[in-house]
């Protein structure tokens, strides 16, 4: 039981991480109609910037700021130099151009930091565990991730539904002309939105650092999982991203945690059971995606209708 609670919380924590990426990706897609593979690179940029600053200065506050700033600045530069020219193109061009960006960012990271993964320690203030319910302890840092994710989700909701910039974002998604008529520089708006999406990815990267290795290619692993989230949740819908991310996070974590034991009970050979469980749990979320697609091809909570 304790294990179930702990693993469920791990799943929720992974879910919030995925949500940060999926929200950025789907926001950018919903508003600008651009599919950005390099969102994973921005995740990596955030993680690396934070890791380097944390080890150099020892300050986690500075590290967080550096991570967010690096992701936002590189994201906006990316928008200004490349993405901007892709708004009117088809999705295939967008995918391929941002694929080229990934090659660049990955290799650049190798040049700058080498292939060895960087490890970041959990901030001392957030180290340790918290007593949740009867006999169940849970790492404080992971709880903080959940908290930050929740706050971000809330913040996004307020930003989009309650503020002027959110109004512009919503209007810009459906009617570019109208936004222009309001005297708003749509290009600037797009750059800002892109920077916002980049910052969300960077934030996820920063927080991931201390619980997993910071290494080249970390962005793509999580990017593809993010795609699964978006397909399950419904393309272009923030609510869908939220629900999809939590489902994917929990299913993925629970399968990895419990399937090996389950199969070992059912199968004679332990090593075969482990291998099979490893395979199935790695594929689990993709199977889930296939099932969702069979039932609802547009995802659980599609953007319109």
């Amino acid at each position: 039981m304790a294990l179930l609670i702990e693993q469920s919380l791990n799943g929720i924590q992974l879910g919030f991480m995925l949500f940060l990426l999926a929200a950025g990706l789907t926001l950018i897609f919903g508003i600008m109609g651009v599919i950005n593979l390099a969102q994973g690179s921005l995740f990596m940029v955030g993680a690396y910037a934070a890791a380097v600053v944390a080890t150099q200065t020892g300050s986690y506050v500075l590290a967080a700021i550096a991570g967010l700033a690096a992701a936002a600045i590189i994201g906006m530069a990316m928008e200004y130099l490349v993405i901007r020219r892709l708004y009117a193109r088809d999705h295939l061009d967008q995918v391929l151009a941002t694929f080229g960006l990934i090659l660049f960012f990955n290799q650049m990271t190798v040049i700058l930091f080498g292939r060895q993964p960087l490890f970041v320690r959990i901030p001392p203030l957030l180290d340790g565990s918290v007593h949740i319910v009867a006999g169940v302890y849970y790492p404080l840092y992971r709880l903080v991730i959940i908290g930050v994710g929740l706050l971000t989700a809330l913040g996004l909701y307020i930003l989009i539904s309650r503020t002027r910039i959110g109004m512009l974002i919503r209007a810009g998604a459906t009617n570019r002309e109208m936004v222009r008529a309001l005297g708003v520089d749509i290009r600037l708006l797009y750059t800002i939105v892109f920077g916002l999406g980049a910052m969300l990815a960077g934030l996820a990267g920063i927080m991931t650092g201390p619980i997993s290795a910071v290494q080249v290619g970390m962005g793509e692993q999580v990017l593809i999982l993010t795609f699964v989230v978006i397909v399950i949740g419904g393309v272009g819908s923030i609510r869908g991203a939220f629900v999809g991310a939590l489902i994917v996070g929990i299913v993925d974590t629970l399968l990895r945690a419990f399937l090996p034991t389950l199969l070992r009970h059912m199968m004679a050979s332990g090593s075969e059971a482990d291998a099979l469980a490893g395979g199935i749990s790695a594929m689990g979320v993709y199977l889930l995606m296939a099932i969702v697609l069979l039932v609802r091809p547009k995802g659980l909570l599609p953007a319109n209708g």
Partner: peptide, 11 residues
């Protein structure tokens, strides 16, 4: 580090 050149070329 050829990918650092290939990437931008592809873009």
């Amino acid at each position: 580090n050829w990918q650092v050149i290939l990437g931008p070329l592809l873009v």
